[in-house]
Computed example of a mutant assay.
Amino acid sequence: MFRSSLSDYCEKDQLRWALMCEACWELIVKADDDEFLDSLELTYVERKLLEELYKQGEDRIVEILELQGEALQEAIAELSEESLGDIGELGKVMIALHTSEVFGDLFEQAVQDAFEPLFNLAGESELLELDDEKVWSTKNKAAKKFVKEIRSLVPDMNQSSTDTLLRSFEKAIDEGNTPSERALLVQGISAIAATGEDGPFSMVRAQRVSRTMSTAAANGGKLEGWKQSEIAKGKKWRSAAGSRTRKTHRKANGQVVDLDKPFKVGKSKLMYPGDPSGEAKEIINCRCTMQLVLD
Rank of each mutant, 00 (worst) to 15 (best):
A183C: 11
A183N: 10
A183E: 10
A183G: 09
L184N: 15
L184Q: 13
L184M: 10
L185V: 00
L185M: 10
V186P: 06
Q187V: 06
Q187R: 15
Q187S: 14
G188S: 06
G188R: 06
I189K: 09
I189T: 05
I189C: 05
I189Y: 08
A191W: 03
A191H: 07
A191N: 07
I192K: 12
A193G: 09
A194V: 01
A194I: 03
A194D: 01
A194W: 02
T195W: 11
G196C: 10
G196I: 10
G196K: 09
E197P: 00
E197F: 08
E197I: 12
D198I: 15
D198M: 13
G199T: 12
P200H: 10
P200S: 13
P200A: 14
F201E: 12
F201D: 14
S202R: 01
S202M: 03
M203N: 03
V204G: 10
A206H: 08
A206Y: 07
Q207A: 14
R208W: 00
V209Q: 15
V209I: 15
V209A: 11
S210N: 13
T212Q: 05
M213T: 09
M213V: 07
S214L: 12
A216K: 02
A217P: 01
A218H: 05
N219Q: 13
N219L: 12
N219S: 15
G220V: 09
G220P: 05
G220I: 11
G220E: 07
G220H: 05
G221T: 00
K222F: 01
L223D: 00
L223M: 12
E224A: 05
E224T: 06
G225P: 08
G225S: 04
K227D: 02
K227P: 01
Q228N: 08
Q228G: 02
S229R: 05
S229M: 08
E230C: 07
E230I: 01
I231M: 10
